[in-house]
């Protein structure tokens, strides 16, 4: 199939960017979205033009690197699917596709479709860990975790930190990301000890990094390629209130 692409091109963080039009010809429906872009880039290179720069790594939907807003939806709008797992069979011959980078104050554009997601790391560094003494490996079942708690924590831990929640949020807020980390650790015995400090430090870091405030639109959950539920935001709010009285 043949497609018309409108791709955001920006040569550097301070440079002005604009949408440029490209034709993707003879695209196979079995190609992934990134493979389609790879082919467009091969043609651009052959023509002596600058290829489209985009983030990618594992290409199996777990690293959270591919970050493109496709036709107005982060990751293209197929439920629980990252860009790398999005296949061209989802599109029709003759379609026009808009490809843009994540847009949020906290995510400056580095080049074309690549943004700097360091702000998410700053939130993690502020409290996304548990403190423990190193030493010998603890016995397997020394610390019992009830199965429902383990399942709950695993659901939160599904977050791959791609930032689609921020890209989708009308407020450029990272509450879904932050809440997934806070809830995951607060649900486990290893994380409970520092739960109060963690929720304060991580939400403060979120604010300091320039993310907006959550106003419960729930666009984040709809765009999340891992289906992280906004119930974790409610959990963060509960943890925060507990911390206020500590």
């Amino acid at each position: 199939m043949n497609l018309t692409l409108h791709v955001w091109r920006q040569s550097g963080p301070k440079e002005p960017g604009k949408l440029e039009q490209y034709e993707a010809k003879n695209v196979s429906p079995d190609q992934s979205f990134l493979e389609m872009l790879d082919e467009v880039n091969e043609h651009l290179i052959k023509e002596g033009k600058d290829p489209i720069v985009f983030d990618h790594d594992c290409r199996e939907g777990i690293c959270g690197m591919c970050s493109q807003v496709i036709n107005g939806v982060p990751h293209g709008g197929q439920e629980r699917t990252t860009v790398c797992q999005l296949h061209m069979r989802r599109f029709n011959d003759g379609d026009t596709i808009y490809i843009e980078p994540w847009r949020a104050l906290a995510f400056p554009i580095l080049k074309d479709l690549i943004v700097d997601r360091d702000a998410l790391e700053k939130i993690m560094q502020a409290g996304g860990y548990t403190s423990c003494h190193t030493g010998g490996v603890a016995d397997g079942n020394a610390l019992l975790v009830p199965k429902p708690d383990a399942d709950y924590a695993m659901d939160a831990a599904e977050c791959i930190g791609c930032g689609a929640c921020v890209a989708a949020c009308p407020n450029g807020s990272a509450m879904l990301y932050t809440s997934a980390k806070v809830a995951q650790l607060a649900a486990l015995p290893q994380g409970k000890a520092e739960a109060a400090e963690r929720v304060c430090a991580m939400t403060d870091a979120m604010q300091a990094a320039g993310f907006g405030n959550c106003s419960n639109h729930y666009e984040c959950q709809a765009a999340c390629p891992k289906g992280i539920n906004v119930k974790f935001i409610a959990r963060l709010n509960r943890e925060y209130q507990k911390a206020l009285f500590k």
Binding site: W8, N71, G72, V73, G77, Y98, H217, Q221, A223
Partner: peptide
């Protein structure tokens, strides 16, 4: 965003 589709 040149194109933004809201889902929710």
């Amino acid at each position: 965003y040149a194109v933004k589709k809201n889902l929710k």
